[in-house]
Design a protein around this nucleic acid. Sequence first.
DNA 1: ACAAATCGGTAACTATAGTTACGGATGTAA
DNA 2: TTACATCCGTAACTATAGTTACCGATTTGT
Lengths: 241, 241
Amino acid sequence: MQQRTMKSRMMEKVKAIASECRLFENIRPEELCALLVCLDFKVGSFSRNDIIKMAGALFEGVGVVIEGQVSVVKENAAGERIVFSILKQGELFGEMAAFSGDRRWPATVIAQTDCSVMYVPSDKLVGQCEASCSGHSKLILNMLGILSRKAITLSRQLEFLSIRSMRGRIAAFLLEQHKKSGRATFMLDMNRNELADFLNVARPSLSREMCRMRNEGILDFHRSSMQIRDMAALKDAAQER
Amino acid sequence: MQQRTMKSRMMEKVKAIASECRLFENIRPEELCALLVCLDFKVGSFSRNDIIKMAGALFEGVGVVIEGQVSVVKENAAGERIVFSILKQGELFGEMAAFSGDRRWPATVIAQTDCSVMYVPSDKLVGQCEASCSGHSKLILNMLGILSRKAITLSRQLEFLSIRSMRGRIAAFLLEQHKKSGRATFMLDMNRNELADFLNVARPSLSREMCRMRNEGILDFHRSSMQIRDMAALKDAAQER
DNA sequence: ACAAATCGGTAACTATAGTTACGGATGTAA
DNA sequence: TTACATCCGTAACTATAGTTACCGATTTGT
């Protein structure tokens, strides 16, 4: 009785979180209920610091954080453990691995807090049920969208890091912001530390170079308020290596 | 009559190339014939240097090179045109954009030689036909696989470029090769120029650093023959920034 | 066998970026 | 308003990486 109550509470939680998760976007609540039944998903609960999935273990399905927070941790070539990302409820993990053909977890997933996660097996994700409910098609589209955007994001970051000079990276970034905002004056939405991390440079060096560009009349800025003053020079700067 | 012959010759060509394309992997020839009918794809032919698709134009579908060679060209932030990739027959383009939600070509596609390309509309890729032929499911799985592996490849490259020191990148690369081959002695399959491009460093600088590592007893190599002599030191080197 | 092309290593030099520590400006909390 | 924390800019220094040109070794083509 009490166990059944716990199970149905977890089911309610799964529904609530799934309805806000990109994997289940554009799926109406009734469709979602039917779909969740079809998906044959599993839920696991973990205590803080538990290892949810170990890298190299057999892959069972795409993970969704239902409660709490998890970190995805990878071992670099040197065997050093690096935090790849920290995920909160509604966020996915394992999505790049799900259809890659390599049936192992590529990274270790660790509970950052007490948490619950659900797993949706890859074959269920792309399968159809006897009822052929429309949720399945949307799920597939969502999965394709997730992977597409992931690839695009990675590609964008790679474009920045392929620029060897710091000035080139700064210029490319600001030109991108300018293109997005449509204006020569805009607010940066990262602090210096975050921008330095994003461009993979040292914060004091970033500051030095940005100030040089201001002194040369290319930019004008104060903290996160940014204005491009010499677009031609900025474009020249973005072209250098 | 002659036009019909040309059309059926092109159809034969499409079938032949499609059977070797990853998008149509694991699809039996009979399935493929039925599928190609369902897909409502288009074929375009172009002369050398023609613009096949202009960046920003409305996206119509994933492209497959049927004949010849095309280059995918992107404009960087500075407006400078950069060759992103050169594709030969059977290879795909536009696959990252197909389900990203942004309905425009993100890059320009140019005919490197006289060529033909086919376009498969995104909605046809994920759709089902009345016959629900099994080729559709495989197509979807293939598409998911292509995007997954693309993301994984980009992620791998990003891992290298996120290492700031040249020595760190070299070490990470060699440790990866060691892991792949299972041995401390292996052949590099890139020449120095290619390796320098891959690690995004200057060739003479790459040479200098590799030779220093050899002089320090970490490596032993002659041209593309490589041996790791001090694994611990190499791992230490891979950990630095 | 020989000439030409390609590849890889080197030197000398220039340029860039990282590091460490600090302090003023700004924001936040009491 | 004040104290504390955070953020950003700076200086002085060290370290690393890029550039240019060249040359010997190796490969390729005739």
